[in-house]
Structure formats: C-alpha cells, structure tokens
Measured scan of single mutants.
Amino acid sequence: ADFLSNDDYAVYVRENIQVGMMVRCCRAYEEVCEGDVGKVIKLDRDGLHDLNVQCDWQQKGGTYWVRYIHVELIGY
C-alpha cells in the first residue's frame, strides 16, 4: 500500500496492530536492525510518533520499543 505521509502510515499501523502480532522492522531504529522480526508484546497508543510498540525482537534478542513507522505488519 502507498501512504501519502508518515502520519498516514502511523495511523494505519495504530488501527491494525495487535498484541501477539508479528512485525518486521522496515526502518532501523537504535538497536533494532531493518529486517528484524519481532512479536508485539505491549502497545501504548497515546501519540502517533511516540515509542508505541514494544516487541520481542529475534535478531536483537530481547525487547525494545519502536515507533509505528518503524514496523510493517506481517500477521500472526
């Protein structure tokens, strides 16, 4: 899907992401590398560009918070 802005994409992720879902990092962020796959373990839905998504990352080996714009949804 094509999104006009980071805000549009962040809204899409916020409306669709669920705890337990698998996500792929589509934009490297601090300790999380692009392409790493993680399981969503906690969500904080306050802002669009806060650290909203806590995942247990496979490559990184452990949990880390990222923003909506850092992840793509790959289902369960």
Rank of each mutant, 00 (worst) to 15 (best):
W57G: 00
V32N: 06
G38F: 01
E72G: 03
M21D: 06
E31L: 09
G20V: 00
V71N: 06
E34L: 07
G47V: 08
A10P: 03
V11L: 15
E72I: 04
I69F: 15
V66E: 00
D2V: 06
S5A: 12
Y29D: 14
Y12L: 11
K60W: 04
H70A: 05
E30S: 09
L73E: 01
H49N: 15
D7F: 02
S5Q: 07
N16G: 05
W57S: 00
C33E: 15
E31Y: 07
E15C: 05
R67K: 11
N52T: 06
G35Q: 00
G61K: 12
L4K: 14
K60M: 05
V40A: 00
A1G: 13
E34N: 04
W57N: 03
D36N: 04
L43V: 15
V37E: 06
Y9G: 07
W65R: 11
K39V: 05
N6S: 13
D44H: 15
D2R: 12
Q59L: 09
I69V: 12
D44V: 14
D44Y: 06
D50N: 10
G75D: 08
N16Y: 05
H70I: 01
R24T: 10
V19Q: 01
R27W: 07
I17S: 00
D2W: 08
I74L: 13
V71I: 14
H70G: 03
V40G: 01
I69C: 06
C25P: 02
L51A: 06
V11M: 13
C25L: 02
L73Y: 02
G62S: 10
V40I: 07
K42S: 11
L73S: 01
R24I: 03
G35C: 02
W57D: 00
K42T: 13
I69S: 14
D8T: 11
R14G: 07
K42R: 10
L73H: 04
Q58A: 07
L48A: 12
C55D: 03
T63L: 13
Y64S: 12
D50Y: 03
N6L: 13
E15H: 08
N52Q: 09
L73F: 12
Y76L: 14
G75I: 04
C26R: 13
D50M: 09
R24E: 09
M22P: 07
D46G: 14
H49A: 08
V23H: 02
Y29W: 08
L51F: 08
V66H: 07
A10H: 09
V53I: 09
K42G: 13
N16R: 10
I41K: 02
S5M: 15
N16Q: 10
D56E: 14
K60C: 09
Y9N: 05
R14E: 13
C26G: 07
C33M: 13
D44E: 14
W57R: 01
L48V: 10
E72T: 12
V66R: 00
D8L: 06
I17W: 01
R27T: 13
I74Q: 15
L73R: 03
N6A: 15
E34M: 08
D7H: 06
K60D: 01
D50G: 15
D46M: 13
V37P: 00
V23I: 04
L51I: 01
D8P: 02
G75T: 12
V53F: 07
K42Q: 15
E31I: 01
E15N: 11
Q59V: 09
T63Q: 04
G20H: 03
Q59T: 10
Y76W: 13
E72H: 03
S5V: 13
E15A: 14
R14W: 11
E31V: 04
D7A: 07
Q58T: 10
Y9R: 09
V11C: 15
I41V: 12
A10E: 10
W57A: 00
Y12E: 07
Y68V: 05
Y12Q: 09
R24L: 01
R45T: 12
D36V: 02
G47D: 07
M22A: 10
Q59K: 11
R14V: 00
Y29S: 11
E31G: 13
V13W: 02
E15M: 08
A28M: 07
V23K: 01
W57L: 01
H49T: 12
A28K: 12
R27M: 09
A28L: 01
V32G: 00
I41L: 13
H49P: 02
E15P: 03
V32D: 02
G20W: 04
D36L: 00
L43Q: 00
E31K: 10
N16I: 13
A10Q: 06
N6E: 15
E34V: 11
Y12D: 09
V23Y: 01
G38M: 01
D8I: 11
L4I: 05
G47H: 05
I17G: 00
C33P: 10
K39L: 08
D50R: 12
E31R: 12
E34S: 09
Q18Y: 15
D44T: 15
V37T: 11
Y12S: 10
Q59R: 14
V71M: 02
A10C: 05
D2N: 14
D50A: 14
Q59D: 14
G47T: 10
H70L: 01
E72Q: 07
R45Y: 02
E34R: 05
D46K: 15
Y12C: 06
C55S: 01
R24A: 07
D36Q: 03
A28D: 10
C55G: 04
I74D: 09
D56G: 01
H49E: 08
Q58K: 14
Q59C: 08
N16D: 00
D7P: 06
Q58Y: 02
F3Y: 15
Y9W: 07
R27I: 10
C26Q: 04
M21A: 13
Y68E: 06
D46Y: 14
G35E: 02
I69P: 11
F3Q: 12
L51H: 06
L48W: 04
M22C: 00
A28N: 15
C25G: 01
I69T: 12
D50K: 04
W65Q: 03
D44C: 09
M21I: 04
D36E: 02
L48M: 11
V11F: 09
H70C: 15
T63E: 09
D56M: 14
D7C: 03
Y76P: 14
Y76E: 15
I74P: 15
K60A: 12
H70E: 15
V37N: 05
V66C: 04
E34W: 08
T63A: 09
G62R: 10
Y29F: 12
E31W: 07
G38Y: 02
R67M: 03
Y64I: 05
K60H: 07
Y68G: 08
H49L: 06
V66Y: 04
D56N: 10
W65S: 09
H49I: 00
K60N: 11
V11P: 00
D8A: 15
G47M: 14
I69G: 12
H49D: 04
F3E: 08
Y76C: 15
L51W: 15
Q58S: 13
D56W: 09
V19D: 00
I17F: 01
R14H: 10
M22H: 13
L4P: 08
V40W: 00
F3D: 11
E34H: 11
T63K: 07
Y64H: 10
L48S: 11
L48E: 13
M21K: 04
A28G: 13
E30F: 11
L48N: 09
G47P: 12
S5C: 06
H49Y: 07
V37R: 07
V13G: 04
G38C: 01
Q59W: 03
N52D: 00
C26V: 13
I41C: 07
K60G: 09
T63V: 13
V66T: 12
D46P: 09
Y12V: 03
Y64T: 11
Y9P: 07
E30K: 13
